[in-house]
Design a protein around this nucleic acid. Structure first.
Length: 508
RNA sequence: GCGAGAGUAACUCAGCGGUAGAGUAUCACGUUGCCAACGUGAAGGUCGCGGGUUCAAAUCCCGUCUCUCGCUCCA
């Protein structure tokens, strides 16, 4: 990165602050770092936990028909076949740079292969079937001639390529030659627009058990939602719920993203906060509407500026395989708008898919109406790390105090990793002892920080950088009337309160 | 995968053939006493890794690893 950017690029400044202050930093640093992996430090871990807890409470405390779940990261491999994840992403795919569509390589090259042999056959019509094919028999500059040459060269099959017989060489290589020769998009018809095929192994593969064989293959979940779908009946029964009801879950998910980056915005290991809402068929739009509103408001409750949020509706022709309607809440990051959460109408796609694959009945029986149906699902799927990044970006502030630049995080006290600091103005004359006493009284109930080292100004600034909202300072007046000063991070304003009120002050 | 950039102290960087540096941060002592003060001192580096050229390499050459950014992609 150019050195300039570190001083001027807002994201780079935030990244530097996060590292310096132990919020978030590159993982595996002593080994040179590992791409796309980050560790959350002493101030980042509680901050992330706070956001996750606020989400959890918002779901499970505020709604008596939403319950929590913590399902396994590794589910039965068939789950991912049924959900469509395995199929969609484990094949080599090519994509068209013109129309942006993706295709399975096999599907694309099949007509190319047919064309190749058909053309060869026509060009070789004056020869007997079964005759050897030589490149020089074919028209100069033709794709067929160049392909034949490549095949012979690669496979060392000189004099052995026979008309009508498929060349005996690796499919992979053969496909590559076909793509080179007949590169044309099957959808938009654009020529030479298909990029090189790539294996899209979206899912993290692993092995269950100490012995590695084909039966031991397992996958780390690429979304937490599937665990909810599998368990929906047992959860509903044990919690005595009936539609509409929701199941909420936070947890790690893993995707082998092609491109990672923008700090913690897109990483291969990340954390989701998902709630799946099970409703009667036909009631989907009304609930989708309601959840859109509730989720939008939640981001505002974290202190995120409304003018940095917007809705993005997925166009109908670009919806995921399971979705009928999809809305994203996006935040205006320094690098542009980015998705924080998707609110989707998943319909009955997932339950039906799992019913078919597992052979188990996943319908819901409505006792009152005497009817049986697959509940339709409205999903709210949020990214915890992204939310935290948005909160950090939104909170990052610089101002000037007496000619000195000040950096602080204007975090909502609910999110701040340290709620308050306790300082003696100086460490002598018994002030430190009084401060330590107050600190000890608070520490088991609140995340608080005690510091007697260095100048008072420096200590305030350090707290500003991790977004600590309050600092209590014990000064000489404390010895006279038992009052301490409270200093508020954003304004630097101070007021005096009695030292016995400190605890109550923090509770608000 | 392609393109570009960067790896020197905990951080930001300077040095670009001749003894490894600065500022900040850290620690100790002193001083001051409400917004990144000051003084004195200390600690901290196989200059990403490997090889080559040279009397001499952080510096030049070759290789390699890693990270960052951009593009393609993103249930």
């Amino acid at each position: 990165m150019a050195k300039n950017n570190k001083q001027t690029d807002p994201l780079a400044k935030l990244v530097a602050l996060c590292k310096r202050r132990g919020i978030v930093f590159q993982s595996s640093e002593i080994y040179g770092g590992l791409g796309s992996t980050y560790d959350y430090g002493p101030y980042g871990a509680p901050m992330k936990n706070n956001i996750a807890r606020l989400w959890w409470d918002d779901m499970t405390l505020k709604h008596d028909n939403i319950v929590g779940l913590d399902s396994a990261v590794i589910l039965h491999p068939k789950v991912w076949e049924a959900s469509g994840h395995l199929k969609e992403f484990s094949d080599p795919l090519v994509e068209c740079k013109n129309c942006k569509k993706r295709f399975k390589v096999d599907d694309v090259v099949e007509p190319f292969s047919a064309k190749f042999w058909k053309n060869i056959s026509q060009m070789m019509s004056s020869f007997e079937p079964g005759k050897l094919i030589q490149p020089e028999h074919l028209p100069e500059g033709s794709p067929e001639r160049s392909m034949t040459g490549k095949i012979l060269l690669h496979a060392q099959l000189k004099d052995k390529l026979v008309e009508g017989e498929l060349p005996d060489l690796d499919n992979h290589v053969y496909n590559e030659y076909l793509l080179d020769a007949y590169n044309q998009c099957p959808a938009c018809g654009e020529k030479n627009s298909l990029l090189k095929p790539r294996d899209f192994n979206l899912m993290f593969q692993t092995n269950m058990g100490p012995v590695e064989d084909e039966n031991s293959t397992g996958y780390f979940r690429p979304e937490t939602a599937q665990g909810i779908f599998l368990d929906y009946k047992i959860v509903a029964e044990s919690a005595r719920l009936k539609p509409p009801f929701g199941i909420a879950q936070t947890g790690k998910a893993f995707r082998n993203e092609i491109t990672t980056g923008n700090f913690i915005f897109r990483t291969r290991e990340f954390e989701q906060m998902e709630m799946q809402y099970f409703v009667k068929p036909g009631e989907t739009s009304e609930w989708l509407e309601k959840w859109r509103q509730l989720r939008w408001d939640w981001y505002l409750s974290l202190g995120i500026d409304a003018d940095k949020l917007r809705w993005h509706e997925h166009p109908k022709d670009k919806l995921a395989h399971y979705a009928k309607e999809a809305w994203d809440i996006e935040y205006l990051f320094p690098f542009g708008w980015g998705e924080l959460e998707g609110i989707h109408d998943r319909g009955d796609f997932d339950l039906k898919a799992h019913q078919e694959a597992s052979g188990k009945d996943l319908t819901w029986f409505d006792d009152q109406e005497k009817e049986r149906y697959h509940p339709h699902i409205v999903e709210t799927s949020a990214g915890l790390n992204r939310t935290m990044l948005a909160v950090l970006c939104n909170a990052y502030k610089e101002d000037e105090q007496a000619g000195e630049k000040r950096v602080y995080l204007a975090l909502d006290p609910k999110i701040a990793p340290v709620k308050a600091a306790v300082f003696p103005l100086v460490k002598k004359d018994g002030l430190a002892e009084i401060a330590a006493e107050i600190y000890d009284d608070l520490r088991t109930r609140f995340p608080v920080f005690y510091d007697k080292q260095g100048s008072i100004g420096r200590r305030y600034r350090r707290m500003d950088e991790i977004g600590t909202p309050f600092c209590f300072t014990i000064d000489y007046q404390t010895k006279d009337d038992d009052t301490v000063t409270v200093r508020w991070r954003d304004t630097l304003k101070q007021e005096r309160i009695h030292k016995d009120q400190v605890k109550a002050y923090l509770e608000n």
